[in-house]
Design a protein around this nucleic acid. Structure first.
Lengths: 332, 332
DNA sequence: CGAAAGAGGCCAGTTCCCGTCCTCAATCGC
DNA sequence: GCGATTGAGGACGGGAACTGGCCTCTTTCG
């Protein structure tokens, strides 16, 4: 076996089990103990911290050093990472979306097909808990786009444009030189140069289907804007989130803010506060209203007023008249 | 530069940008083009697929092969992975928890301290969206335990036992030989041998504080049970989830099942169905009730009946009398 | 105290690695 | 179709690096 190959294997061994007696490592790598010691030295020279314990039942241990060593992952671990990144990319943690997609693209691009299949199978389970609402973005599309951006490869996809004047648009095939992915609000946008329309556009990723790359490359053009994010913002100022939720609470601003976190802005108003939350779905606002034990008034939109009324009536029908504190009201 | 170091660097370069002209790679690695070609060969011999494009503007490309190559990650990517794994470990995807924790332990153990700090800062944002309820498990504790299990290191932690007979227990210091982490329902348990009490126990991870390892090792004992999961189950049959939610819906079972997914069992009953959902919190059941546009009856627990009644009344107060479909009912 | 296990210097033999030079083989633009 | 560009790869010689063996020293545990 090659020296380089042996080093990788040694790194891998050191990552799977914390303590390794030198003798066992030497056996596994089929070298003499002396050479193993030299290998450990080499790993140290690469900047990775290897801790050694002397004496009886001593051994080696890879520790956190100054840089992250190359990760040698089991199949299962790789899948867990990919699935985890997928949720991170879909906006579970603010400000992490872009990096998560970048990392996801890297991992997916290197994953053997069999792992990719298993990942897809598992990933499909994450849907179905629409706790935040909003259109679901296909992680595969996202990672194809991320990689295409990174590598300057044109992408093709089927795009269904936003309905204009109430008429739904037909899906059309696009060929685009991708520039950057931007995560704004709770949506993903691709900024790129549309080859057919010969102009810069931003595309909503959740409206794309069948994204593919050709494998060729293009010479990057200069974006006619300060940065991709502002380009997107300039384009979508007319079509923000679907609902513009505004609710007045009797509770104080801190209590409300602590619960809704970064998904909404909360401002003190009189004795209570006003919450402002752009949202694609009414589920999340409704949950906030149900959870916060505070009187409130919905200031808009009308759909939320309707929803609150409907839920209120349905809940009222669900419990026996006069219920609300009594124990005897339970059935069964 | 060393040959091994160069190989790692080459792998890293091939991972950051898809296409690399051979000349540029040779420059970066400060070797002759001939040596670069040999390096590429070496990488191929390691089992990783390197695609080469000949001709003008040709280059090399690392592709998905039969095994995942060592991942060389940027700081940001490593953080994204760690945060993503954290959410995966907390049960976002069924059946992935154990692997996610294992991978998380590996990554965290190898992460330089500065990255770990940044990760902690970011991770704190994920809290505050208690959509599923249940006690929050500290990811740091979890990964310490996972690593201790893997490496047969005794752990110490402060444990607050479950209240018995209504009396809360005092937190006590424990020294345990960890055996396995088990994710059951929506909780994490550590199965291990309690050194002080000299017996096998299962501990709820959310009741632990200050988990540390000593760095020593112990000789693993044999677990007196078929497997760790059944050991835990045998121990907790008396103390399941906090609430045992049972709701009868008018909607058909499929509709309900599609929404609640794996968090509950749904059985057809008469014209509708009955949902059974063990839960630690009433938030999630309430959200299900609010979201599903179906008449329902709460069969238990009493707390949920109360909550439904309270929310119903509060919602009713929130909208003007007679509201529910009118548009004119919006204020402001 | 002695056995076990890591640290590391020294040495000789061997391997391998590197750069150079060469010829071929694709590929793309003109 | 032709030439420029770029990857593939054989041959070769000098030199660097690697290996195993042997030795001594240090640390740790029983």
């Amino acid at each position: 076996m090659n020296t380089s190959a042996r080093m990788l294997r040694l790194l891998s061994l050191l990552q799977t089990h914390r303590y390794w007696p030198g003798g066992e490592l030497a056996d596994r790598l089929e070298v003499s103990p002396r050479t193993l010691r030299r290998d450990i030295d080499r790993i140290r020279e690469l900047g990775y911290d290897v801790d050694a314990v002397r004496g009886v039942s001593g051994g080696y241990q890879l520790r956190a050093g100054s840089t992250l060593p190359p990760l040698l992952l089991e199949d299962e671990e790789a899948i867990a990472i990919a699935v985890g990144l997928h949720t991170a990319a879909s906006g579970a943690v603010a400000g992490l979306e872009e990096t998560a997609v970048q990392a996801l693209a890297k991992v997916i691009a290197l994953m053997p097909p069999r792992l990719r299949r298993r990942m897809e199978a598992l990933r499909s389970q994450t849907d179905g808990v629409p706790w935040g609402g909003g259109p679901v973005v296909d992680a595969t599309v996202l990672s194809v786009l991320a990689q295409a951006c990174r590598d300057d490869e044109p992408v093709g996809f089927v795009y269904t444009a936003r309905p204009r004047d109430g008429r739904a648009a037909e899906p059309t095939q696009r060929r685009v030189e991708p520039h950057r992915l931007v995560s704004l609000g709770r949506r993903w946008y691709l900024v790129g140069y549309d080859r057919d329309r010969q102009d810069w556009r931003s595309f909503r990723v959740d409206r794309m289907r069948d994204a593919t790359t050709t494998g060729h490359r293009f010479r990057p053009r200069e974006l006619p804007a300060a940065d991709a994010a502002s380009f997107v913002q300039a384009g979508i100022r007319s079509a923000p989130q679907r609902y513009d939720v505004r609710v007045r609470f009797a509770a104080d601003a801190d209590t409300v803010a602590a619960y809704v976190g970064r998904w909404a802005t909360v401002e003190p108003a009189g004795a209570g506060c006003v919450m402002h939350m752009p949202s694609d779905s009414l589920d999340w606002p409704l949950m906030v209203l149900a959870h916060l034990d505070s009187e409130f008034t919905v200031e808009g939109p009308a759909e939320l007023v309707d929803a609150v009324a409907r839920v209120g009536e349905r809940f009222a029908r669900a419990v026996p008249r006069g219920g609300g504190s009594g124990r005897g009201s339970i059935k069964g």
